[in-house]
């Protein structure tokens, strides 16, 4: 009697076990499939851009200014320089306030200002990038009377700010409080502790956050439409040369460079892709490839950097 009861119980348990195993197998296949599905667009995009753009990549593409529409040859040297200039300006404008705000938010999280910083970075992250462009148009372009790399750099900086603040804050929170205490117990003032102990300890994360922010900003088009505008004749060397010829000092030349409207790769891509000339369409593809490679390179560099630093930290 007892025997039968226990054996039916056992059989019922076995049946439940089979069902669990089946469900597990099905779910495993499903998650695997959807993961593969999610990866398809990425590789498709990369593959297609490489296929379309790769065939139009020539050395001249990197080193020459654009030729008139409808003619062969020429490159996007203007846009490459412009992208570099915009990214440098954006980094310079975004990094100091971003870092300081993050320190404040991490150290005084429950003060009114600390809460405000976090809330407003979230809101800022949600503001459409074209609105930021429009804002800078009203604030800088209209006031200055012309489009400029400066306005574009500021627009990209505002765009990067939330990424920098949030990643920095998270990274600072990960630094063990005991490190900060150890430094303060030696008599170090708070600012030296932050600069010499907390910042280096959080360094890896900060650099990644910064580079990822830069990578994102370098791919933006919308905020530049109203600010940097585009400039098919932009060339550092000729600006410096003409500046020197008219007897300007280095600072004046620098100001002149950032006062110019500039092009960027995404801006070039956006403009060229709409033009009816096949040469320009081809160059748009090539520009897409260069832009993608740049963003990818920044990402890979950021990760390699972390790997290298982390290994050195552990000794």
């Amino acid at each position: 009697m007892t025997n039968t009861a226990s054996s039916t119980h056992f059989i019922r348990a076995r049946r439940g076990y089979t069902r669990r195993r089946t469900a597990n197998a099905v779910m495993l296949v499903l998650t695997g499939l959807t993961t593969a599905l999610a990866l398809i667009p990425l590789f498709w995009i990369i593959g297609y851009v490489v296929y379309q753009g790769g065939q139009y990549l020539t050395p001249a593409f990197f080193t020459e200014l654009p030729t008139p529409p409808g003619t062969e040859g020429g490159g996007v040297w203007n846009a490459i320089q412009g992208t570099i200039l915009l990214v440098i300006l954006a980094g310079l404008f975004a990094l100091p306030p971003g870092l300081l705000a993050a320190f404040y938010a991490a150290y005084y999280p429950n003060t009114p200002l600390g809460i405000a910083v976090r809330f407003s970075t979230d809101v800022l992250a949600g503001v459409p990038s074209i609105v930021i462009g429009l804002f800078l148009y009203a604030l800088v372009v209209v006031v200055q009377g012309h489009f400029s790399g400066l306005a574009g750099g500021i627009a990209l900086a505002i765009l990067m700010l939330p990424t920098i603040i949030r990643t920095t804050e998270e990274m600072l929170k990960l630094v063990p409080p005991s490190l900060r205490e150890a430094s303060l117990a030696l008599g170090a003032p708070e600012w030296k502790t932050s600069l010499q102990v907390v910042l280096p300890a959080a360094g890896n994360g900060l650099i990644t956050g910064f580079l990822l922010g830069l990578a994102r900003a370098s791919g933006e088009t919308a905020p530049l439409l109203f600010t940097a505008l585009g400039n098919e004749w932009f060339d550092f060397r000729s600006l410096i040369r003409s500046g020197l010829e008219s007897g300007m000092n280095p600072l004046e030349i620098l100001v002149r460079i950032i006062e110019q409207p500039v092009d960027s790769l995404p801006l070039t891509l956006w403009k060229y892709a709409q033009q009816p000339y096949p040469e320009r369409i081809h160059q748009a593809w090539a520009a897409a490839l260069v832009l993608m490679a740049f963003v990818l390179a920044v990402n890979i560099f950021a990760r390699l950097w972390i790997l290298f630093r982390a290994r050195r930290m552990k000794g």
Binding site: S178, L179, S183, A201
Partner: peptide
Amino acid sequence: VGMVFQRPNPFPK
């Protein structure tokens, strides 16, 4: 007045 803490906390240097 120097201090040594419960858990060793060398700087990552």
